[in-house]
């Protein structure tokens, strides 16, 4: 599989605290890669770095070999936050946002917004004020907003953390569908181990800012290379 993102010797520090250190990683085109680790392990910071939102103290990140022209790189990605920020506007305006800032033609916008809302199971609500949606609907609308411009990489930060089981299943179906139908690369940060079992292809375990193991899903759950990985997956308190 083609390499899409390469991370080399990455370090990130906030104040006195070293949040990430010595991170080396490759993300492959079309895969679902999941970072797992406890709260505070550095998952969100790593996603923000991958989206060029933060500047690392050391190391570098390359997207298809590029690490300059950040706006251009970022326009090929989408980052979905744990709690999506909803613009005080209609569902249509929210979902269309990424297309409008790219100057896409109105007719194409209308069609793409409709398609994206269909994928997330929210057809026909274009005119509704987005801030009146329920938590699950808001998360799905944010998904539609993130995928409407066909990003090459979708970065997801705990996308189902605050949702009920029915909405968790819907979001997981959407993730798999986007990858299977559009070939979108998905990078997911979560501490939901059963979810990783259900949808990931490869897994990286982050503990205390260190990426202790990167392995296939089968490998990480059946034959982890690091004793700490095994302990974390088995739910033992090691942090």
């Amino acid at each position: 599989m083609e390499e899409l993102i390469r991370v080399e010797n990455l370090q990130k520090v906030f104040g006195e605290k070293e949040v990430l250190r010595n991170i080396d990683l490759k993300i492959l085109k079309g895969e679902i890669f999941a970072f797992i680790g406890p709260s505070g392990a550095g998952k969100t910071t790593l996603l923000r770095l991958l989206n060029f939102f933060e500047i690392p103290e050391k190391g570098n990140i390359r997207f298809r070999g590029m690490n300059s022209d950040i706006i251009n790189i970022r326009r090929r990605m989408s980052l979905l936050f744990q709690t999506p920020a909803i613009f005080n506007n209609s569902v249509f305006e929210n979902v269309a946002y990424g297309l409008k800032v790219r100057g896409i033609d109105k007719k194409i916008i209308d069609k793409k917004v409709g398609d994206a809302l269909n994928i997330v199971g929210l057809p026909g609500i274009e005119k509704q004020n987005a801030r009146t949606l329920s938590g699950g609907e808001a998360q799905r609308m944010a998904f539609a907003r993130a995928i409407v411009y066909d990003p090459q990489v979708l970065l997801l930060d705990e996308p189902t953390a605050n949702l009920d089981p029915a909405n968790v299943m819907k979001i997981e179906e959407i993730i798999k569908r986007i990858r299977n139908e559009r070939g979108t690369t998905i990078v997911l940060a979560t501490h939901n181990i059963p979810q990783v079992r259900r949808i990931a292809d490869r897994v990286g375990i982050l503990l205390n800012g260190e990426l202790i193991e990167v392995n296939s899903k089968v490998g990480i759950f059946s034959k982890p290379r690091d004793a700490r990985s095994e302990a974390f997956i088995n739910g033992e308190m090691i942090y």
Binding site: F53, I71, R74, P84, A85, A146
Partner: peptide, 15 residues
Amino acid sequence: VPRSIIETVFTLGGT
């Protein structure tokens, strides 16, 4: 205005 609104603009490719 929540910081997350501004960050969302950037994540969606805004300037």
